[in-house]
Design a protein around this nucleic acid. Structure first.
Length: 505
DNA sequence: GGTGCCGGGGC
DNA sequence: GCCCCGGCACC
């Protein structure tokens, strides 16, 4: 998901935060795999149980107004009431901010103490929504017209802003997210598994909290003005921050992607260099459909016509298509690299042509796997051997057994024999599934990390490209063995001042 | 200083 | 893709 897209969505997401509006309209921030179904009357139910958070009571909302309000904002793409199983795309809109809830005034406000929380709405019907943590951020867009639209006649619409504590929480949330987004734990792709990210991020979150806030005796959080430098790095626009950092929480795999966008925002030269090779593609998430198109309009049209059975010529879109496709970033460099690596260019290359692992599994597990594991998906499903005595590029026999029959999240083992730098295979899908930060384009890794390690250790990190140099081999090289006078006996790599291929450690 | 080799450039 | 070389780190 691109930050841009989120930004684009934001105005719609926060629209109508006026009084009386609970901010449900279109602001159903969901996790990817959250499936909702619509009950008669437009009541949306989720599979999760309602949760009371921090002891706050639930809100009472007129169901009709809710229904009404949840239709309108679907302009942002998250309409939930079609009755059809929705495949939510990763591009999510900004949830109703807590600002919304604060505006409500007397109505008790749910506090977001977890990544998602659910609002239970009475009037004999249950409504659950998932509202993301980022909803706590001060996204304040006052739209009077939206107020009119969404304000329910049945809901008392206090215009009194609920004071104190909520604003503090808002600031706290902003700081938390800011801190997260600037935390190396989040930014560093080497954090590995998403679980680790969550854990470490959580820790940093707590630490940053304790560092950023001082708690008064009344129990209210107070902002320490002297500590506003806590987000030690220049903060990008807060709205971007919201997206990035929250996703680090709620969408484990997404943090990779989001971290990438973070780098964009921070103008990291390295990232920016690679950014040029990134191309956003749009993948149809419809079951058994792996259509990937380069334009959103194209994929929308595809979904409309193929899957929704609508008139494809019509540009009219109610946004439903948005649920059925996902943006994926394709690293064109690694794409080409992977293809060239997998192509049996060497006469000694054995084995069948690489078969790209197919997206069936992907489409089933959907976006969660889109950026799941770089190597498990990037490696060809066949055992790929490359052997050549010549080219230093091909270096050594590299076998990458991967198991296409296993779940994608199972770890593939990478075995690289002898000194050769490990070749990170990037098949087409691998490149596609590599989103951002994992696709460093690095082909070579220090050999010390290459042998007998799982994929997590072979995932290139930006740091590996700088600073760490391959230790010098102990074995004599062609130069020493043959001497300068017999340079023609040297291996090609030695002649080219590359890593010797003949005498390896 | 010699060596290994990475990164980059020319063709 | 082949070939070369500057430059850097290691020994």
């Amino acid at each position: 998901m691109t930050s841009k897209r989120l930004l684009d969505k934001k105005p719609a997401g926060v629209r109508g935060t006026g009084a009386g509006n609970f901010g449900y309209e279109g602001n159903y921030c969901t996790k990817h795999n959250e499936h909702f179904s619509a009950k008669p009357g437009g009541i949306i139910t989720g599979k999760k149980s309602p949760v009371k958070i921090n002891g706050f009571d639930t809100q009472i909302v007129d169901a009709c107004s809710l229904q009404e309000s949840c239709k309108e904002p679907c302009s942002n793409g998250n309409r939930l009431a079609s009755g059809r199983e929705k495949h939510y795309t990763k591009k999510k809109t900004i949830c109703a901010s807590e600002e919304d809830e604060r505006e409500v005034g007397p109505v008790d406000v749910l506090k977001c103490s977890s990544f998602t929380h659910h609002l239970v709405l009475n009037e004999q019907k249950q409504v659950e929504t998932i509202i993301s943590l980022r909803s706590m951020l001060p996204l304040r867009v006052t739209d009077v017209s939206a107020e009119k639209i969404y304000a329910s006649a049945h809901i008392p619409v206090p215009h009194i802003r609920k004071p104190s504590g909520h604003a503090d929480k808002e600031v706290m949330a902003a700081t938390v997210l800011t801190t997260l987004s600037t935390s190396p734990l989040v930014l560093n792709p080497s954090s590995g598994a998403s679980g680790g990210v969550l854990e470490t991020s959580s820790r940093g979150w707590k630490e940053s909290l304790s560092a950023s806030y001082s708690s008064s005796t009344s129990g209210n959080w107070s902002w320490d003005a002297s500590d506003q430098s806590v987000p030690s790095t220049p903060s990008p626009p807060l709205s971007n921050d919201v997206n990035k950092s929250f996703l680090a929480y709620s969408q484990g795999e997404d943090n990779i992607e989001e971290a990438e966008s973070t780098h964009f925002l921070f103008e990291d030269p390295i990232r920016r260099k690679r950014k040029n090779s990134m191309k956003v593609m749009f993948k149809c998430l419809w079951k058994n459909c792996e259509k990937v198109l380069s334009t959103s309009s194209g994929i929308q049209r595809h979904i409309r016509t193929i899957h929704l059975g609508r008139n494809g010529d019509s540009d009219y879109s109610d946004g439903e298509e948005d649920f059925y496709y996902s943006e994926i970033a394709v690293n064109m460099d690694t794409l080409s690299e992977g293809l060239s690596n997998l192509t049996p260019t060497s006469p000694t290359t054995t084995g069948p042509p690489p078969i790209f692992p197919l997206v069936n599994d992907m489409s089933q597990s959907r976006s969660a796997t889109v950026i799941h594991s770089p190597l498990s998906q990037s490696a060809p499903s066949t055992l790929c051997h490359i052997r050549t005595d010549h080219a230093y590029q091909a270096t050594a026999p590299v076998s990458i057994p991967t198991v296409s029959s296993e779940p994608l999240h199972s770890h593939s083992t990478i075995s690289v024999s002898w000194q050769s730098p490990s070749i990170i295979f990037k098949s087409q899908l691998g490149a596609v599934n590599h989103v951002g930060i994992l696709s460093t384009g690095e082909k070579r890794q220090p050999v010390t990390h290459a042998v007998g390690k799982t994929q997590t250790t072979t995932i290139p990190t930006p740091k590996t490209s700088t600073g760490t140099r391959k230790p010098r081999g102990e074995a004599k090289k062609c130069r020493k063995v043959y001497g300068m006078e017999k340079k023609d006996l040297w291996c090609t790599a030695c002649r080219w001042k590359k890593a010797c291929q003949r005498f390896t450690d």
